[in-house]
Design a binder for these strands. Structure first.
Lengths: 341, 341
DNA sequence: CAGAATAATGATAGCGCTACCATAAATCAC
DNA sequence: GTGATTTATGGTAGCGCTATCATTATTCTG
């Protein structure tokens, strides 16, 4: 009893071979038309395109990926989707990939390098054209794969370190330093810091270190600090401001690691009858739209999230091969003066 | 001159055949171990797993997908990443897919059915296990592919219609109706509506229609309406509230299509010295965390975005084959009384 | 004990496309 | 006109895995 022929196959699904037969060309000529590769006579191209339209042919990307040892997938590892920061980055990536054949596959790492490593390995099974991830800190295993893999790598958000291939972002240490410098120049002297305890958020830590350096250079120091266990939120910011003001008398400004928490600080001020800026400076990070839409726009640092994502993806698309030289792209940041500090 | 052998292949990359050789078993036994399929003796499994670890073998998913005519990719088409709503949905999807072999591939449709169709076709080239998209309205071509494809389909957010396979969400018409009813019961009589003109946001339109029906049933009507051209934002909400109050005298409540805009409305009240609720009701939709963290929590409808995403993905994972019966899962919504209406 | 069922493993062909080599015709340059 | 180059197209093997059939040994059931 012989095996059923082509048992793997769905006979209703048109293949490239069906297209080629209908167009009266060889399989690889039809393939060349689909890939827009090599010289194709206009009449031949037209015949193939007509056959594609008639059959409703959809390429089998798995087959192409297997045959060419490369795919059109881009693996994107994001630390979080809990606030708008990384969705903005993803939006930039997606914008750059629009009109290309590349598609983003998404994983969320929760700022945990071990999760990042696990997700990365599962993504590599698809032989992605590129891997996009956040930050410059990875497990040794992850780093080994990133360095030895035959795909492009973009590490986003942070440029204070040695990237595998491309880094796109800003110096978070410098942003923290400039925050401190800016506030000192505005006359603030008694600094508080409200933060969170996410171990993997290297960038918040770097900004905190930069802030402290700026205060030290000005002969000042952080008078008080409060942190929320685990992830940050607006409500946490609100409560922590209440707590820090109760514990530390006379603060004249409080710096937050992100706008979500800073807005919580503003809400506490509104609730407690504290006038932002006049009675207490409030300073955030990220420059979210919603913070700028408040009656008193939040004083903060603008991180160019969309630009970071878009720039990274565009850079990756320039070449499938890794150039010899690593690239660091500084998108910079802006100090938004706002009205709260 | 014979062709170079295995020219497609990267000789450094271990394959299943390498694993099998090292473990002293056949290729398909090694494959069975990797897939956890069929009876495998414990000792055999251990040998294969040891070989995998030693070689650092990563499966080639394209090969598996080609051979089995199915992949472990899940195509996710989101209308927008501009606010936190669909990132929350995506977070739910991602949570359900964690610890499974499935990975989400992301496309953003900008609420445009034609873009949705284009993205869908490009995703189908990967033979996804499932397609997740928003709403029940698609182009005829898209619908044909969804109906005849050999993959699961989950249409999210809306359940007022005939799904292809699974629908998970809420009745937006009913949510709008209940908004109107709730506000009438709280004593409001002079209703305004601030909205946006996104053509593809069927759900905002359905809520608007439900609101109008509730007002009609109460012998009332919308006295005034303002809309922002194009996408919505907090700033747009703020400006439109200012505009509508200037044009329509005596409104006692204004309904917004989403919390982002409603918060803009609150910010306008703060700026203009209007006391929310006492002088003017403000009502939103979505129940965002940041709205609830305000000193006066926003009055709104809570859409269970994370739950919708998670539920849909979980349901899709139950079976690769489409059941005969379509499934509609109503995650419902909550009225959050809040303090602004 | 005998037959049926289950556990465990293996052989083979093929999934749909493309890298690479090959050939023929047309065009270009001298 | 001749040789070199470019344009255009085709043949073949193989990419890495899995669906399907096959075989053998062991266990279960009557």
């Amino acid at each position: 009893m012989p095996r059923k022929r082509n048992a793997h196959r769905n006979p209703d699904t048109p293949t490239l071979a069906d297209v080629a037969r209908l167009a009266g060309v060889s399989d690889i000529t039809a393939s060349r038309v689909v890939r827009s590769k090599g010289p194709i006579a206009d009449a031949t191209r037209a015949r193939v395109l007509a056959a594609i339209a008639e059959l409703g042919y959809i390429p089998n990307r798995a087959a192409g990926s297997l045959a060419s040892s490369a795919s059109t997938l881009m693996s994107v590892l994001l630390p979080s989707l809990s606030n708008i920061v990384f969705p903005d980055v993803l939006r930039g990536i997606h914008t750059a990939l629009t009109e290309t054949a590349f598609q983003p596959v998404i994983g969320v790492t929760d700022y945990d390098p071990m999760i990042e490593e696990r997700i990365l390995l599962s993504f590599l099974a698809w032989q992605p054209a590129a891997v996009i991830l956040a930050g410059l800190h990875h497990t040794a295993t992850a780093r080994r794969h990133l360095e030895h893999g035959r795909f492009r790598v973009a590490e986003l958000m942070d440029i204070d370190g040695d990237p595998v291939d491309i880094a796109v972002g800003m110096s978070h240490w410098q942003a923290g330093y400039d925050t401190g410098k800016h506030l000192v120049q505005r006359g603030y002297r008694r600094f508080g810091y409200v933060g969170h305890t996410i171990a993997g958020d290297d960038r918040a830590r770097a900004r905190y270190n930069g802030l402290r350096a700026a205060l030290k250079d000005a002969g000042l120091l952080l008078i008080a600090e409060e942190r929320v266990l685990g992830p940050s939120s607006t409500m946490a910011g609100r409560h922590l401001l209440e707590t820090i003001l109760r514990k530390a008398v006379g603060l004249d400004v409080v710096v937050f690691p992100n706008d979500d928490m800073a807005m919580g600080g503003i809400f506490h001020c509104i609730h407690a009858g504290i006038t932002p800026k006049e009675q207490l400076g409030i300073f955030g990070f990220n420059g979210l739209d919603i913070g700028q839409a408040m009656p008193m726009p939040l004083s903060t640092i603008l991180s160019k999230r969309f630009l970071i994502g878009k720039t990274a993806a565009e850079k990756l698309l320039e070449s499938r091969e890794r150039p010899a030289e690593k690239t660091i792209i500084n998108t910079g940041y802006d100090i938004i003066e706002g009205a709260t500090a």
